[in-house]
Design a protein around this nucleic acid. Structure first.
Lengths: 208, 208
DNA sequence: AGCAGGTTTCAGCAGAAACTGAAAATAGAA
DNA sequence: TTCTATTTTCAGTTTCTGCTGAAACCTGCT
């Protein structure tokens, strides 16, 4: 029910404001995250907004809530659609387009991981392969330095290659299995118990 | 043996130039990577230079090779030292400071991962915890929306929490075990075989 | 102590990225 | 088809980030 959030039996104006604030905080954090990841702050904020409210929203809703221009919303939504973390929704009897975010966190994370690998790791791997091909030339004249170079190149390649293989299992179309794998690995005693030093806020909602 | 790379029995001027070019390409790629990761291009380039040559270098060497200012080198090196991927080296009989990069790729990757988690994930987790504390207020007046909010917050938290736990095993002081774990996981049939569609350059000249 | 060689800091500049606003394009209704 | 509500594009503007270069600051030799 994408109802223009107005007076709802359950929510007083005050509670509304508090909800609003909590949401805004999430949006702000996610947005800051976005800058660190190299995507635009607004794009991350739009995504956060759609995710946290869970309701389809149209361009004007987003503009109003985030206080950004129409053009900016349009561009951000487009990227989000490309990433596959947001989809268009048509409401019958309304000419506007509505947008809503992927609600399953793991799908969402897969999508994010997929994009990031594409942008961050793959180009490096390509470059590495390309550079490796210069090796023989060097090797012809300077075998020792060529070997050193080749070794370092290979080391990096192998490291990132492994990570990529791993990540593709996670991010690929059938990647859901990795959620399980991750949980397994998280439990497995690799070295020692690595509590990440943060006490989970207890009870409350069970999750997916 | 940090010899100012001059005439070496094994290397003709030509081979030297070719080695140089291969290195430069690596440096450029790694530098581009850096921008994507939100660290300055120069910082990444300095690191790449120190890694790929494997030789300790002083400020002037770096300035000359990378064509950047003294101040820039100074700042970059400082960050690199903080990240723990580069260390100071004193050469006896020379007042200059020399710097050299961690040569083990896995240590290097652990260091990188550690920094990135610190900068990217931890703040989000903190924000999430903080926001979750606003929940009860909302809940008092609007139980339904509060539950929805809490659930979404928890979902994200759980997802990132799991990843963090995992990552800390990898990046932590005893994290070396994860190299093994990664290899294991890479082999394990999670769903289906995920060849990452890239054929490793097979010894010599593949095509580009 | 004074001095020479080296490193760090930082104000100002330059280039890049993000954002706006309005014009152009598009898609649905009649 | 035409008319109109909505979305997209893009040139201009603003904002941000990284870089430089010179002055200030260390550090250890004499």
């Amino acid at each position: 029910m994408p109802k223009p959030s107005s007076t709802n039996p359950n929510s007083s104006a005050e509670a509304q404001a508090q909800l609003h604030e909590a949401q805004d905080r999430f949006i702000a954090s996610w947005g800051r995250m976005g800058s660190v990841w190299g995507i635009s702050r607004t794009m991350a904020e739009v995504h956060a907004l759609l995710y946290i409210t869970g309701r389809p929203m149209c361009t004007d809703d987003i503009m109003a809530r985030l206080g950004v221009s129409r053009g900016n919303v349009s561009m951000s939504v487009r990227s989000l659609l490309e990433w596959g973390v947001v989809e268009k929704v048509r409401l019958p009897g309304d000419r506007k387009e509505y947008y809503s975010a992927e609600q399953d966190v793991w799908s969402m994370m897969r999508a994010i991981a997929r994009e990031r690998i594409k942008r961050e790791v793959d180009p490096l791997l390509d470059a590495l392969d390309e550079i490796a091909e210069l090796g023989p030339q060097v090797g012809a004249r300077s075998p020792e330095e060529a070997r050193e170079l080749q070794k370092r190149l290979d080391d990096v390649r192998d490291g990132f290659g492994l990570i990529t293989t791993l990540a593709h299992k996670f991010a690929g179309p059938r990647g859901a299995g990795l959620q399980t794998a991750a949980k397994l690995l998280a439990k497995a005693p690799v070295g020692r118990k690595a509590t990440h030093g943060r006490s989970r806020n207890p009870a409350k909602g069970g999750s997916s």
